[in-house]
């Protein structure tokens, strides 16, 4: 009698574990659609690419375009700026200028300060972040201030000599 009850008890424990496991897997799976629904929607993902016509940007001028909702600075650098940047390695996050551009006259960087996400203002020699005073040069490299890294270079490619697709 006792033995039989023990077997029953054991079977029930196994059944409970099995049912509990199957149920827990189901609950976890049921959470996924809700979590996933908070990710970018298809129409947001479809806007991941931005096409920019550069022909209207004069030498020495800058244009700001939106890419995935973020500002992207496109600077048409003049020969003096190119020369000056080629000689420098930047500041606390050193990087040669050629690793930061595809065509030397076109600098394309994400216009978000790597410190806390403000949009830096253009100056003669680069950018100055209004929030905490980080200074960037005309290659988007941080020279001074609290920013830890250079301005990010987004993925982009030239589809025509004066047309790029960012993303």
């Amino acid at each position: 009698m006792v033995g039989k009850e023990g077997v029953d008890e054991e079977r029930r424990d196994f059944l409970l574990t099995a049912t509990g496991t199957v149920g827990a897997v189901g609950i976890a799976a049921a959470c996924w659609p809700f979590i996933s629904s908070m990710n970018p929607t298809l129409d947001v993902q479809a806007q991941a690419n931005t096409e920019v016509d550069l022909s209207g940007v004069a030498a020495g001028a800058m244009r700001t375009v939106a890419w995935r909702g973020k500002p992207v600075f496109i600077v048409h650098r003049n020969p003096e700026q190119i020369a000056a940047m080629a000689q420098s390695e930047g500041g606390k996050d050193p990087a040669p200028d050629r690793t930061r551009v595809q065509e030397p006259q076109w600098l394309v960087v994400v216009g978000i300060c790597t410190h806390l996400g403000c949009v830096p203002n253009k100056t003669e020699d680069g950018w100055l972040c209004p929030c905490h005073g980080s200074v960037y040069d005309n290659s988007g490299r941080v020279l001074q201030g609290p920013a830890p890294r250079n301005l990010e270079v987004p993925p982009y490619h030239f589809v025509e000599p004066t047309k790029i697709v960012i993303g």
Partner: peptide
């Protein structure tokens, strides 16, 4: 999945 789970729950309920 629900048929499997409900089947298990039914057996469990019977046992309990």
């Amino acid at each position: 999945y629900l048929v499997l789970l409900t089947g298990l729950l039914y057996v469990l309920k019977r046992r309990v």
